[in-house]
Design a protein around this nucleic acid. Structure first.
Lengths: 145, 145
DNA sequence: CAGTGTTTTGCAAACATTTTGCAACCATTT
DNA sequence: AAATGGTTGCAAAATGTTTGCAAAACACTG
């Protein structure tokens, strides 16, 4: 299991004919800095600005879309709110528990699908992907609330 | 296990001091018509209009919020997109498989949490809720794509 | 290291979604 | 009939995201 880092991401992008720009690098660095934590597009933009001033919001969105399509980041949202993003930290399949307060995440290595596939196939659905997320509070935020 | 219908919802609302208005009724009927299917706020608004013309979008949103807080509907979203809603069809805990094309859902009675609680508690998180959703295509939409 | 084709960017504007303040309304109670 | 408290439509704003376009930047090539 290879943990993701900057060079892996750059390789991947290159392999898909994406070029490395300061903006893109800044966005990736912002995400790396937040490893293990979901953040909103707005926060990513802010962090990116401090690394490469003038980066536009649209650039951030465009790059997040690219990174997501390449499986480098996860996109989700808490109860239908604004989208939040997180670096995929390694290549193994896993799920998350997400702090509703600060976005901190922990990995859940178990995947419920293993036990459920038979259960589902006779519903007539063809399953392409699944989401299993736990929400709650990390120890820090739990004390505050 | 009591399956939800119009009268249950009306009872619940009344018990919480909410009044039954034509608009609210129209919104609920629109949701009932879509039982077993997630729909977006925009669609609910459209359906509501045909039952009670002039109903404003804000009214729809306000009522969806109320219904959600009372546990009558579920709110979620597919990959960070716009919010989608569905009537909670019964009072038992369960999960969904959602068709990415038409929003049709099926119930998954198994809950992965049953087997996982121990696994998670030593991460320092206090779990308040969880989401387990499968995505794919229902038989109809699968043929089309 | 200039030339080339492609990608990427910033900007501005558009678009989509959701929320809010407010005055008016309605049903029920006093 | 006045008062109460939830509810609505309207208009506007806030929020979040996407797009078209011309200019700039990038990775190659020779």
């Amino acid at each position: 299991m290879r943990v993701i880092d900057k060079s892996i991401i750059e390789e991947k992008l290159k392999a898909n004919n994406y070029k490395m720009t300061p903006q893109r690098r800044a966005i990736i660095e912002a995400l790396l800095e937040h490893r293990g934590r979901f953040i909103a597009a707005g926060e990513i933009h802010l962090k990116t600005l401090s690394r490469h001033r003038g980066t536009d919001f649209s650039t951030v969105y465009r790059n997040l879309e690219i990174l997501e399509k390449m499986g480098i980041i996860h996109k989700t949202s808490i109860r239908g709110g604004a989208a939040i993003y997180e670096l995929v930290c390694d290549y193994s399949h896993h799920h998350h528990i997400i702090c509703k307060e600060c976005g901190k995440t922990a990995i859940i290595n178990a995947c419920p699908m293993e036990h459920l596939i038979e259960n589902i196939e006779d519903k007539g659905f063809t399953v392409t992907d699944h989401k299993f997320e736990l929400y709650g509070y990390c120890s820090k935020c739990y004390k505050k609330c």
